[in-house]
Each structure stands twice: as structure tokens, then as C-alpha cells.
Design a protein around this nucleic acid. Structure first.
Lengths: 262, 262
DNA sequence: CGTATATTTGATATCCTTCAAGGACGGTGG
DNA sequence: CCACCGTCCTTGAAGGATATCAAATATACG
């Protein structure tokens, strides 16, 4: 499935460049722009809440290393994690629209972020139509993930939700080179999984132990794997189309004309 | 809140133009482009499923009149409505990325849609940066709605979810001139509300009757109103920021420089 | 009018939450 | 090296929220 040979992506490319490089063919000028855009970096410690719901958003963030969550706290005191941002994911790409953050953001692990000035995003749209298209693509994928989460919370059992979510993380991490066919390292506690999927910690625990008992997932030393992947996929009703990274459609004209083909 | 005097928006403008006109100042060339883009129209009958999950997406659709739902059916036979598309909303704006539809789409009422060729969307990005910015904005708003739904399904009680959803519809309809301070006409059955909010029909019914008993909402002859709006808003934990239409941020340079101000 | 569709109500079952407490595990300091 | 402590995982028991099944009533529509 991978086809990165055509483009000029260096070994030490950032997760963002690797991500976009799988989607569109990048010129070296574009690669340079993306990398220099990330020079302003910040190290965030595990647990730090660095954006707060309602506060003004001054910049777009890009995760370079570590796991980050976006969440809301309801007046009743429940936390709901809207999504997990992994390396290569933007946070607040919409900074030019919503000037105040609609959610809080915190680091689950020690993390490294790039701070990107809003004007950069506008500049990409003006000067690099192919990159702009890539950003749009990431935004759409973001929506797809949210839709799938809504389906999970609304129409799947606890065990299905959890397994679906773990499969999603696996694919997403694999897409940035942080997981292999063997599995991935999970940086979430059961409580956090519950907050992602709208379940109590206790219920996550019981559902997970049923899943592992049924060999639908294996968790050991923080490593998650799926001993019988196809059984897991069908049990969780997992349709990976919502995470695919590039279009094979040949009708693309204009902006997308440089999309890679399979 | 409305400030449409500056721009040249005709009386009989389409919902799309009215929507975007509230967000950015449109030139008459832009208005013309948006209107001619919609010449290819289709009438859809109530109940018609006109896009099916998994089938290729040939065009972007724009709702001009009527209510439309996007939904998924799980293997277990449950339907989950991902979202309701109202006049002025796009469906499949991402057609240039996902070449197959990730959900089914059906008309809740008789509806009128514009069929927009994918190349038009690309053309907007090339030729009309301000309009492109408006489309991006609509995409972001779309995500915001999905996030809020995820919070509802994951962390709010049945009654809160339903009321939150009704308030959302009210605001969204008001923004395209289809609702007033008095309320709006609801085109959803209780079953459909349940499919939107991940609840059974019976439970929607009981929660709704509790809500009406408590005067948090009033439903009569299909008209929905909120006798004590502020009580409803606080009960439902409704924060309308996720639906606001324009930025008051003055830091916008570049593409957004023509955003209207309060 | 009559039939289909939508709403309402009751009774029961299930899923999931909450509360409570015990156990495992890793890190830290003596 | 071991005792201590915090965090996470695990398990039990009970209660609450929501689903399901079933049937009656109301409403819309041809």
C-alpha cells in the first residue's frame, strides 16, 4: 500500500511530511516549507493542559511526538475526550475561524509540539495549493473519525466501541510509522479509554477482559495486538475506509491532480 | 446580530448565498458564481435514499429546500443518523478526497438539491479564495457539530441530549431564515430523534414528555419552541459557540481579511 | 373514513454506572 | 534492598438509566 518512492522525502522527515507525503507528491520546496514551519517547538510534560476550553487560540499546534487529547468537561463533572491527536495531527487548524477554543487540550505523555502561526495556514492556502489540499484532506479525515465515534457511541456495544477504537489507533499509528503489523504501544489508561468512548472505567475494564478472554485483542506490557485481526475487525464492525489516506480516483483535476496513485 | 446590509445579496438569494453572506462579504461576481453553480437541480421525494453507503460519490450536493439525513446502518441493524443537513448545507464537499460515500443519505421531507460537479469545488479554491475560505468554514462548523454530538452521546443524559439537539436545530434554522425567536417546525419523528441521539424511540418519548412537563420545551402541531430559553440552555448545557457563524477576530490577515465584523 | 404512521403507556430485562474495597505494579526514599 | 506510596487495574454488589417487547391511542393522509 505504501508508495513513497516517487517523492523526495528525507529519512528524518517530520511526521507531518511523512503523512502528507503518503497522500500527495511533494516537491522539495513544499517539504522545505513544511519543515521550516515547524521550527518553533514546545516541549509539553505529561499531564499538562496547555489549551483551555473557552480561552483564545493564538496558534495552530502540530503534534510531533507523544499523545495529546482534546476534551470537554460538562457541568455535571463528566469528561468526554473528543479525540486523540497523534504525531502528524494538527490541533486548531481552524484557528482563523474559531478564535476561542471549543475544548481543552492536554498531553497524555511527554510531547513535542510545533507552534504554527495562523498566518502560515493562510499562506499555505495562498501559495501552496497542493499542500492546502492536503490540509483539507486532514480536516476531512478528522470529521470522518468523529462521525465514526458518533456511530460507536450511539450504536455499538461497549466491547465493540473499545475494540473499534483500538483498531483505529492501530491504523493511525501505523500510518505514521509508530505501529507495526504486530501492534502498538497504548498510552491510554482504562479511565481515558472510558472518557473517549463514553463508558465508566469499571465497564471498560470488564469489557476489555471479555475481549482479551475471547482473543479479540491482546494487551501485555502496554503493547496492544490483535491475534486474529479479521475476527476483531468483523466483531467491531470496523470499516477502515474512514481512515484511508489517499484517493485512487482518476477524475481529479485541478488541485488534486498530483495525488499519488496506488 | 445580522449585518447583511454591506453586501449585494438579492432578496431571492439561495440559502447558500445567505449563509456565506452572513460570514464573509461577497462581491457580486462571487454571488453570481455561487448561484450559477446551483443550476443543476434535483427534486427528491420524502423518504428517498439517494446516496448509499459504499457507493461512489459522483457529485457534491447542496440542500436548497427540505431536511436531509446522513446515516449508517450497523450490521446489528441499528441506524445511526450522523447528522441532519438543512438548507444551505453541503453534502459530500469532500468528494475530491473520499471517492466512495462513507454513509447513506436520504430526504426526510420533499427536498430540492443542487448537484455540483466536483470540479466546481476545485475551481472555487483556485479562483475565489474568499469563497474557499467560506467552504472551509462550513467544514469546520460541520466538525464542531459532530464534536458536540459526541459529547452529547457520551456525557449527557437522554433529556439533555434531546434538548441540546433541538436547540441546535433551532439556531441552525434561524441562521438560514427558517426559524424565528418563536421556534421552528420540526421535521423529525421521535424515532428519528432517537436515531440521531443514540436513544430508543420509547425513551425519546418519555424524555420529551418530561421536558415538556418541565416547560423546557414546547411542542405543538410540529412547532417547537422554548418557553424559557435560558433555562433550556442551561439545562441542556448548550454553548452556542460551536455554531457561531463569523469571526470577530481582528488578527485575520490574508484570506479572511474580508470577514464581516460585529 | 379507513389505513398507515406516529405517539403514548406499561411491564420487564439488560446494560451500564456507582460505590466500595482489594490487589498489582512501578517508582522513591530510607 | 525493602518499605512505602501513588496510580492503575480488578472484582463484587447494588442501583439507575435505557432498551425491548407489547399493545393501546392518537394523528396524518389518501
Amino acid at each position: 500500500m505504501k508508495s513513497e518512492s516517487q517523492s523526495a522525502i528525507p529519512e528524518n522527515a517530520s511526521p507531518l511530511v511523512r503523512r502528507l507525503g503518503r497522500t500527495v507528491l511533494l516537491t522539495s520546496e513544499e517539504v522545505d516549507y513544511l519543515e521550516t514551519m515547524q521550527v518553533n517547538q514546545a516541549a509539553i510534560s505529561k499531564g499538562d493542559e496547555f489549551i483551555r476550553d473557552g480561552e483564545p487560540l493564538r496558534a495552530t499546534f502540530l503534534v510531533r511526538r507523544g499523545w495529546v487529547i482534546r476534551y470537554k468537561i460538562t457541568p455535571a463533572g463528566r469528561r468526554l475526550i473528543i479525540g486523540v491527536s497523534l504525531p502528524g495531527d494538527f490541533i486548531g487548524l481552524h484557528v482563523n475561524f474559531n478564535h476561542t477554543s471549543l475544548y481543552s487540550v492536554a498531553a497524555l505523555t511527554n510531547a513535542s509540539l510545533a507552534l504554527i502561526e495562523p498566518v502560515r495556514v493562510l499562506e499555505i492556502h495562498r501559495r501552496f495549493p497542493v499542500l492546502a489540499s492536503g490540509l483539507d484532506w486532514m480536516t476531512v479525515r478528522h470529521s470522518n473519525i468523529l462521525s465514526e465515534h458518533k456511530v460507536s457511541l450511539g450504536a455499538r456495544t461497549a466491547a465493540q466501541r473499545i475494540l473499534h477504537f483500538l483498531l483505529e489507533l492501530w491504523i493511525r499509528l501505523e500510518q505514521v510509522g509508530l505501529a507495526t503489523a504486530k501492534g502498538f504501544e497504548l498510552e491510554l489508561t482504562q479511565e481515558q479509554i472510558g472518557d473517549c468512548m463514553g463508558l465508566s472505567t469499571v465497564h471498560v475494564n470488564r469489557s476489555l477482559s471479555r475481549l482479551t478472554k475471547e482473543k479479540l485483542v491482546h494487551i501485555g506490557k502496554g503493547m496492544v495486538s490483535f491475534p486474529e485481526t479479521s475476527r476483531a475487525i468483523s466483531f467491531a464492525d470496523f470499516d477502515e475506509r474512514f481512515l484511508v489516506e489517499f484517493s485512487t480516483d482518476s477524475n481529479n483535476g485541478g488541485i488534486n491532480q498530483r495525488f499519488t496513485k496506488t
